[in-house]
Every structure is written in structure tokens, then in C-alpha cells.
Computed example of a mutant assay.
Amino acid sequence: MSDAMREHFVNILKKWRLELVSDMSRTVEHMQDDAANFPDPADRATQEEEFSLELRTRDRERKLIKKIDDTLQLIADNEYGWCDSCGVEIGIRRLEARPTATLCIDCKTLAEIKEKQTGL
């Protein structure tokens, strides 16, 4: 992978990370601003469910930020773009679709098949 391509992915990842961090900050502000003690139990339950959903979403985003940070480190170490399973180069189209990908499309497909088989 060329230096220009690595820089391209660094820019994508940093922008994505910035958006996620910004969303997380807005969630905290929203939850602090909208936290109310509704007298109606149904309204309270609705608010608690909404907050719970937001927190689950933010937890997934927190994990994604960790993956982004790991990927940025791979780029810095010049190890980005190689499949963790078979060692073949991950295609640019796959990396464009999923910049944090660590498996080539073939290995990812096999992993998903195995996951489905063991999950039944």
C-alpha cells in the first residue's frame, strides 16, 4: 500500500473517530439535560428505555473507537491492510467499505459461516 493510500485511510479513520466522540459528548449532555423525574410511571419507563438504548449505542461506538485506534496503530506500524488469518493483502474496496477490517473477504466469510454453524 502506498503512502498516499495510508494517509487516505488515516484521514478517514480520524474523521470517523471525531464524529463518534462528538456523538458521545452530545449523548451525555442530552441525558443530563433531559433527565427528569416524571410523575407518570409510563413516562419514566419510556425515558429509561430511551436512555438505555442510547447507552447501548454509545457502548458499541466506544468499542468502535477502540478498533479505530487499533487500526491507526497498525497504519503507524506499517502493518495495515493484511489479513490477520491468512496473511494475504486485504482488498482496497473492502478497506474502503470497512476501514477497520482485519480479515480479507474470504476469511471473513468463512468466519461468519463458522459462527452461524456454532450458534445453532
Score class of each variant (00 low, 15 high):
Met1Ala: 03
Ala4Cys: 09
Met5Gly: 03
Arg6Ile: 12
Phe9Val: 07
Val10Thr: 07
Val10Asn: 01
Lys15Asn: 10
Trp16Glu: 09
Leu18Lys: 09
Ser22Ala: 10
Asp23Glu: 13
Met24Phe: 08
Met24Val: 01
Val28Met: 10
Val28Tyr: 13
Met31Ala: 07
Gln32Cys: 08
Asp34Val: 04
Ala35Phe: 15
Asn37Thr: 11
Pro39Gly: 10
Pro39Asp: 14
Asp40Arg: 04
Asp40Asn: 15
Pro41Ala: 10
Ala42Arg: 15
Asp43Pro: 04
Arg44Ala: 11
Arg44Trp: 06
Gln47Met: 14
Gln47Leu: 14
Glu49Tyr: 08
Glu50Val: 13
Glu50Ala: 11
Phe51His: 07
Leu53Ala: 09
Arg56Thr: 11
Arg56Asp: 14
Arg58Leu: 07
Ile65Ser: 02
Ile65Tyr: 00
Ile65Lys: 02
Ile68Trp: 01
Asp70Ile: 04
Leu74Trp: 05
Ile75Thr: 03
Ile75His: 00
Ala76Ile: 05
Ala76Glu: 14
Tyr80Asp: 01
Gly81Ile: 06
Gly81Asp: 02
Cys83Phe: 05
Asp84His: 11
Asp84Met: 09
Asp84Glu: 15
Asp84Ile: 10
Ser85Phe: 04
Ser85Tyr: 04
Cys86Thr: 02
Cys86Asp: 00
Cys86Ser: 00
Gly87His: 04
Ile90Asn: 00
Ile90Arg: 00
Gly91His: 00
Gly91Tyr: 00
Arg93Ser: 14
Arg93Met: 10
Arg94Pro: 04
Leu95Gly: 00
Leu95Ile: 04
Glu96Ala: 12
Ala97Lys: 06
Thr100His: 03
Thr100Gly: 02
Ala101Phe: 02
Leu103Trp: 06
Cys104Gln: 02
Cys104Val: 04
Cys107Trp: 01
Cys107Gln: 01
Cys107Ala: 02
Leu110Ala: 12
Leu110Asn: 11
Ala111Met: 07
Glu112Trp: 02
Glu112Phe: 06
Ile113Thr: 12
Glu115Phe: 06
Lys116Val: 06
Lys116Glu: 12
Thr118Asp: 14
Leu120Asp: 13
